[in-house]
Amino acid sequence: MSQTFHHSTNTLSKLSIFGALFLVVGALWVTVEVNRSPYVTQEGVAREQPVPFSHQHHVGGMGIDCRYCHTSVEVSATAGIPPTKTCMNCHSQIWSNSPMLEPVRASFRNDTSIEWTKVNDLPDFVYFDHSAHVNRGVGCSTCHGRVDRMPLMAQAASLQMEWCLQCHRQPERYVRPQAAVFDAAYEPPADQRALGSRLVKEYGIHTRTSCSTCHR
């Protein structure tokens, strides 16, 4: 009786077993990379908002400090989304007839909230505290990027845990002098390692990587 399969299929079957291994590993790798990609993390994706508020104009152009609007960032876990009243501080007189700002005026008139889309939206099981970071030399732009160059707000980082841990493991790579925390255009100096190590000691920063630091 002649063989059903040609002799060469032996090699082929061995190859396919070997290849399947690559296929499985490859599929896992693709899954991991897709999970890290902006498609999933929304990194760098500008969100639509009820009013096209531009940080580029207000921070970069006008030079308004972050804390003018985000008043609670130094004392509270949340930086604070400004109430409509804060917008109206200026926009009662400037651009006061602009149709683009009608939702702001309507919110002020009717005492209703503007429904902003949260851009840097951490998972609900993460308990991030702004005040703990900005009072210990972590600059706004370290996490939020060059906000002063964003016409529409977008996430500057993946906000995934591996990203948080980069700094939690080696804070000396990122901390800056306290006076520069709110400087959107701050660039780390060439001797960041030396400066960072000194500041980590000075500010009493500990490398916190225990689960319960952020998860409760």
Binding site: T78, D111, S113, E115, K118, P123, D124, F125
Partner: peptide, 20 residues
Amino acid sequence: MQDQPKYRPFRKSTFFGDER
């Protein structure tokens, strides 16, 4: 797990009349 049915700061409410 990421979006739990609880109030975090500034989250919308379906319970209160003003949705805050």
